[in-house]
Every structure is written in structure tokens, then in C-alpha cells.
Design a protein around this nucleic acid. Structure first.
Lengths: 188, 188
DNA sequence: AAGCGATGCCAACAGCTGTTGGCAAACGCT
DNA sequence: AGCGTTTGCCAACAGCTGTTGGCATCGCTT
């Protein structure tokens, strides 16, 4: 039936978990269907049956909601720090974002997903927060550059001093940057 | 002889150019020896003869000098803007950095090279510029997070609003961030 | 002109990749 | 109990990968 719980749902879920781990640690091309299937304890052909092909498996594994807070509910001068903390928390609690970031460096579909992630989810927050809505894309892009760069150094490149910081320390440093990108009158 | 100009030097150089292009646009795993050789107009086996294997070829192609200016020669309050402009110029004029960045997302050797690039070249500048030398690694790491994030969004992910900015506009926005990471008394 | 190293290409290898089709066992319904 | 559907594994495929060894050719030295 359509809405009933199928016996294979557990397998489907196990595949997704294994896929996120592999994509996060190896990137798109080095994460093989065989390795993902082995991690999930099943045969590679099951992955194909349930997800069609590798691209669709990645699309399913990289589905993600940033769950950004509503800008309206936050004091205007706290927006940068709040967003910075939220980003780091979201990143640390879910491998999906690391998988997406690693894959996006070499896979065009993943890059496109990253672009739409920021277009659909970050841009509205920037538009609500910045003085001139016409500036919103640029400001959102700058916020993205800082947050993605922090994630890159911390979770992908693992630059020691960036890894050594606590999430709160990192947010305290980066918060004012985000704040300025969102709300400063000018760039100078 | 050792110091004479060999006939194969042109081939060696052509391989390196083709390798940088492929590594920059495709990343480490999707850049194949065959494709690089075809771009260079020679046989794949020549690549092996001259560079040993793919890893060593990448190591040769990813050799890079940031050519950072001496912090002593720059007014202290201009350091952020100067560094930001320098980074962007360096990035735009040479595919090597994009190759290194793309590859570093999925290849551990490339990531290690990226780490040592910032350890050897950026850290000294930060140490010379920041108030307390004990803070230098962290401050250099923060600078790296912003500059690499900008490069990621502009050259790898190609986020439209980040691509649309001129180098000077981008440097004007990011400069104060770098400045604060290097010289601010505290993070708050 | 003869010899020799440097330069280049061709063909092939073993291994891994995504992907497919067929067949056995388990399950759920009547 | 019997039957159709679901779930799973096995074996194999065609293609691509890095890498290797052998053989022709070019160019310089003597």
C-alpha cells in the first residue's frame, strides 16, 4: 500500500545514513555504491533498486533544511551572532551539510543544490534584515562566503586553529562579520 | 646534462599547464591522466615517465607561492584591505589555487598542502600584525576562513551575487573583516 | 656514418566503477 | 495451505582508471 510502513523502510533509511557518512567523508566520486551498501549491510543492487542511480541517491541524501530562525523574532543587533551560532550548531549536528559541501567542490549537481540552498533559505533572511532589499543578494552572498569558509576550514580542511575553537568562540568571532554584512550602511 | 635545456622541457611544462586546468575544473579524482595528456597533446605514458604517478603530478601542479606582501611595509590600518585585494588578484591570475581548493575538498594530500600553505605563508603575516603573537594561529585561521570562503563561493560554487562583484568591491567588503580578525583587541 | 640516450606512441594489464537481470527466500493476504 | 508480491543476493556486463613494458624514432656526439 501507499502509506503503510513497508518492511524495506529500515533498509532505505540505513542506506541514507551510510550514504551521508560516505559522501561527507569521501566526497561524491570517491564514495562508491559498493562501500555505501557494505556500510548499510546490504547488497549494492539494493541501492539501485531503491534510489535508481548514484545521482538520485545523492539528491536524496543531501536534502537539507537550514531551519533558519525568523529574522523578525531576533533583536536587530543580535542577528549576526545568532545566525553564526545557529549555522555552527546545524553543521555539527548533521553530516548532511558536510557531505553537501565536500561534494559541491567537484560535482555540479551538488554545487547547484548548494546555490539553491542559499538562494531559497538564506536570501529571505538577508532580505528581511538588510536596509535596502536590492542589496540582499550581495549581502547574503557575503554571509555565505564567511559561513561556508568557516565550515570548510573547520570540517573539511580541518585547519588546526579553526578546529580548536569551541563553537561559541567561533561564533563570537564571526558574528560581528555576519552582522556587518547584513546591516552595515556601506562596505567602507 | 643537468642544467642544460632539454627538448622535453616544453612537454613537461605543457603537462603542468594541462594538469592545473583539469585539476582546477574537475577536482582530483575526475581529472584523469588521459584527459590531461590529451590536452597537452601527448601520450598518457609520458605523464607517468615525467612525473611518476598521479599524486606526484598533482604535487608538482599545486606548488604555489602566495607572494604575500611584508606586513611591515603596509600601514597597520590598511592591512586588511591590502591583503584582501592581494588574495583576490592572486586567485584570479593563477588557476593553481582553484585547483588546490577543489582538490583539497576530497583529497587528503591536497588538504595537507592547503594547511601548510597557510601555516607557512599566512601565519607569519598574522604573527607580525596582531597584538599578541600567541593569538596568531587563531587569527590566521579566521582570515583563512574568510578568504577561502570567498574563493569557494566565487570560483568553485559560483554563487551569482559573489561572482557578480568586481574584485575591488569584494575586497572593500571583506577587507574590514580581515582587518578585525588580525588586529582587533577582542572577539566581542 | 655509427652509436647511444632521450623522446614518443602503442597495446595491454589488473582493478574498480555504476549498473543490470535473474533467481531464491521471506512475507502477507485469502 | 497456496499464491503473488516484496526483499534480498549473486554473477556479470561494459566502461573507465592508473600504470607498465616494449618498440620505433629523433637528435646529438664521436
Amino acid at each position: 500500500m501507499t502509506s503503510a510502513v513497508r518492511r524495506s523502510d529500515a533498509t532505505r533509511a540505513a542506506i541514507l545514513v551510510a550514504a551521508r557518512e560516505r559522501f561527507a567523508s569521501d566526497g561524491y566520486e570517491r564514495a562508491t555504491i559498493r562501500a555505501i551498501a557494505a556500510d548499510a549491510g546490504i547488497d549494492p543492487s539494493m541501492v539501485m533498486r531503491y534510489y535508481g542511480n548514484k545521482e538520485k541517491l545523492f539528491a536524496a541524501a543531501a536534502e537539507f533544511d537550514l531551519q533558519l530562525p525568523d529574522a523578525a523574532g531576533i533583536p536587530a543587533d543580535q542577528l549576526g551572532a545568532t545566525l553564526a551560532r545557529h549555522f555552527l550548531q546545524r553543521w555539527e549536528g548533521d553530516e548532511t551539510l558536510t557531505a553537501l559541501l565536500r561534494a559541491a567542490a567537484t560535482n555540479e549537481a551538488a554545487a547547484e543544490r548548494m546555490r539553491s540552498l542559499f538562494g531559497d533559505q538564506l536570501l529571505p533572511v538577508a532580505a528581511a534584515a538588510c536596509p535596502d532589499p536590492a542589496d540582499a543578494p550581495r549581502r547574503a552572498g557575503l554571509v555565505a562566503s564567511q559561513m561556508l569558509g568557516l565550515a570548510l576550514c573547520r570540517f573539511v580542511l580541518r585547519l588546526p586553529p579553526v578546529v580548536a575553537m569551541t563553537a561559541d568562540e567561533a561564533a563570537a568571532w564571526v558574528g560581528p562579520t555576519i552582522q556587518r554584512y547584513l546591516t552595515s550602511a556601506t562596505s567602507a
